[in-house]
Design a protein around this nucleic acid. Structure first.
Ligand SMILES: [Mn+2]
Ligand SMILES: [Mn+2]
Ligand SMILES: [Mn+2]
Ligand SMILES: [Mn+2]
Lengths: 215, 215
DNA sequence: ACATATTTTTAGATTTGTCTAAATATTTTA
DNA sequence: TAAAATATTTAGACAAATCTAAAAATATGT
């Protein structure tokens, strides 16, 4: 498989809520920064190879084989991100770009040894689950900080938005994965919330609170 | 630069004895398992970009910039090979293929951090020198085992042939980099030699002895 | 030195992944 | 439900990297 083909499968995986959900041509184009006509071409090729289900004008979904391939690329992406943070002193906002390249390296031994070297991590630096050797992905059940009731306390385990700017905001405000967050109050007018981390009290907009996964 | 362009520069670097030596179209084609006509096309492109000196029918050599780029790829190749052996339990005959892919990953921070993580190694698993951050390559002065006189003793520091079959031969006969080898005798008829490693005596063909770098 | 062999280049084709512009299908709105 | 808006596909083009076959240049050998 080419890198381009792998990127299309990954895009479909990320855009589909479930395996059966149809993903639109435009959504894929947007996700991959390309044109809808290019997507149509590639989608035809991938359905020809039985990696995508495709009926003209009806959007696409992954076949079992396509899903397996997408998960393999995602496993590599997340293991490499973990390696970069754990071993090479990258920060969590620097890893994605490099992992986009590393995820296409082809060597089963490489990735399984890397997994072992890292101690079989369950999640990547952004809290996203890492598929195991067999492509099994165990999603942890989480809720967004924005939906938690006042006085509830929970652990921040992931970020929904992984953009550099959001990650930088969190760093600047010393909010990190693993932190225990207590909801002190909610403002109905703008859905902002007041929280406490350790001794610190912070005011977070809804935009921020709805991008933090809690458990 | 594309992966293909990087591979051509690397090939020219490896085929040229010195910076000024001209490398032939056919030699590059052979090295890259491609056709001479393809080499001509690429060589034109690279000379257009001032990475190669090229005059029709006269062969090519690297410009300063071309040499810099080639050394950067070689640095990455050798650091990744070292990583695979030192950290991921690869053997020295398994690393080349994977390093051929990893050498094209583009991230200055990645490679400099990897260098640091590995403790700034001077040579790769085959004894080949690793260019430093500035592209300086310090060749160590070595001689082939086949040219050493009887009764001389020296350390095996590298292999000239890095093929899987040669490396397997060395493993099978427990000859490794770092071993001290004493030349017990030479047979003029077929240029084979008798050596001693520790307590073991071994008979080596000229083919073997002329592929081991000693110091 | 000249005929022959070898090397290198050119010309033209192919594959992959992309694009623009135009045609067509689907969805939304009035 | 018909017109308008939007989404998708088709047609045709292009750049990159490769190939084959043929032409041209260089090297070799007597
Ligand atoms: Mn990522
Ligand atoms: Mn991630
Ligand atoms: Mn190698
Ligand atoms: Mn090597």
């Amino acid at each position: 498989m080419t890198q381009s083909e792998e990127n299309y499968l990954k895009a479909v995986f990320h855009l589909a809520g479930s395996q059966t959900d149809k993903v639109s041509t435009n959504a894929i184009a947007e996700c991959l920064q390309t044109k809808p006509s290019s997507v149509t071409d590639m989608v035809k090729k991938l359905s020809e190879k039985d990696l995508l289900h495709y009926k003209k004008y009806q959007g696409v979904s992954l076949t079992d084989e396509g899903s397996k391939r997408a998960l393999s690329v995602i496993r590599k992406h997340r293991l490499w991100e973990t390696f970069l943070v754990e071993k090479l002193n990258f920060s969590w906002d620097e890893v994605h770009e490099v992992a986009e390249q590393l995820e296409h390296i082809e060597s089963k031994k490489l990735i399984d040894q890397l997994d072992s070297f890292l101690g079989f991590p369950k999640v990547d630096p952004h809290g996203d689950p890492i598929p195991d050797k067999n492509g099994e992905l165990q999603e942890q059940h989480t809720r967004l900080l924005s939906v938690l009731p006042v006085n509830s306390s929970s652990i921040c385990v992931g970020v929904r938005d992984t953009s550099v700017s959001f990650l930088n905001y969190l760093d600047k405000n010393k909010i990190a994965l693993g932190d225990e967050i207590l909801v002190l109050g909610k403002e109905a007018f703008d859905d902002s919330i007041l929280i406490q981390i350790g001794e610190r009290k912070l005011h977070l907009s809804n935009r921020i609170a709805s991008n933090l996964f809690m458990k």
